[in-house]
């Protein structure tokens, strides 16, 4: 498995305050890697830099061997909200990245329509986002992210808005779909269980300024059993992560 994305020595400050310092992360082909940390530690700042929306003060971002620091449009980025545009039908929302690249509307629709079945969205093509449930909206946003990507996606707390039951269902679905499509993803969460269930590797981001303080490999083979989250192996990972996050992480 080759490396598709790497970020080296990323530092970013806003005014006097350094948000993240000397961050090094990488992502291999087909890998699901999680960036775990408490709120306000700079996870979203890092994603804005990786996606090219913001420039780092120092450091570089490399995608498939080419430097893309500060160049948006190369890596697909799913922001915290689903951000489906309320005035576009689901099919046009999903096909948006294709039309932005200059594909005509009809062709983009055809290309997007192919994936609706697989993403559990069949029949919703011509509905508006307001007509869909939270889980469906999230899947539509994921499909849009997939269509805008050339193999690498950043997901910022993709499932945080969902309730626990919907969340675990969408986790199963997500792992299943990741087997079928070729996408390497780096995602943010502050949910430890979610991180362990989904990831191949976990980066722990902590401190102020935020730094990568630990890297944990989840060796459990995929596809993972549904009761993985109830096994001793899972608990020992959780213990390891809680320790890595440090006592300060659980201040309320």
């Amino acid at each position: 498995m080759g490396e598709v994305l790497s970020a080296a020595h990323i530092t970013k400050s806003y005014g006097e305050r350094t948000i993240i310092r000397d961050i090094n992360v990488h992502l291999n082909e087909q890998e699901i890697v999680c960036l775990l940390g408490v709120s306000g530690v700079g996870k979203t700042t890092l994603f804005h830099i990786l996606s090219g929306l913001n420039l780092p003060d120092s450091g570089r971002v490399v995608l498939n061997g080419r430097e893309i620091t500060g160049q948006p449009g190369k890596i697909s980025y799913m922001l915290q909200k689903d951000l489906l545009l309320p005035y576009k039908r689901i099919i046009d929302n999903v096909a948006l990245p294709l039309t932005i690249r200059g594909m005509n509307k009809q062709k983009a629709r055809e290309k997007a329509a192919v994936y609706f079945e697989q993403f559990g969205l069949a029949g919703t093509e011509f509905e508006y986002p307001a007509q869909l449930s939270g889980g469906m909206r999230q899947r539509a946003a994921l499909l849009r992210t997939y269509l805008s990507s050339e193999g690498v996606a950043l997901l910022d707390e993709p499932f945080s808005a969902l309730d626990t039951i919907t969340k675990s269902a969408i986790h199963d679905w997500y792992l299943d779909i990741m087997q079928k499509i070729s996408l390497s993803t780096l995602f943010i969460t502050h949910d430890i269980d979610e991180a362990i269930v989904l990831s191949d590797r976990i980066y722990i981001l902590s401190g102020s300024p935020g730094q990568i303080t630990d890297e944990i490999e989840i060796a459990e083979k995929r596809p993972r059993a549904r009761d993985f989250s109830l096994t001793p192996a899972f608990l020992s990972y959780k213990k390891q992560i809680v320790t890595a996050l440090g006592p300060g992480s659980f201040r309320i």
Binding site: G52, P72, Y77, L79, L85, S148
Partner: peptide, 9 residues
Amino acid sequence: AVDLMRSMG
């Protein structure tokens, strides 16, 4: 939404 559009190029 503007950021999303920019991230799509």
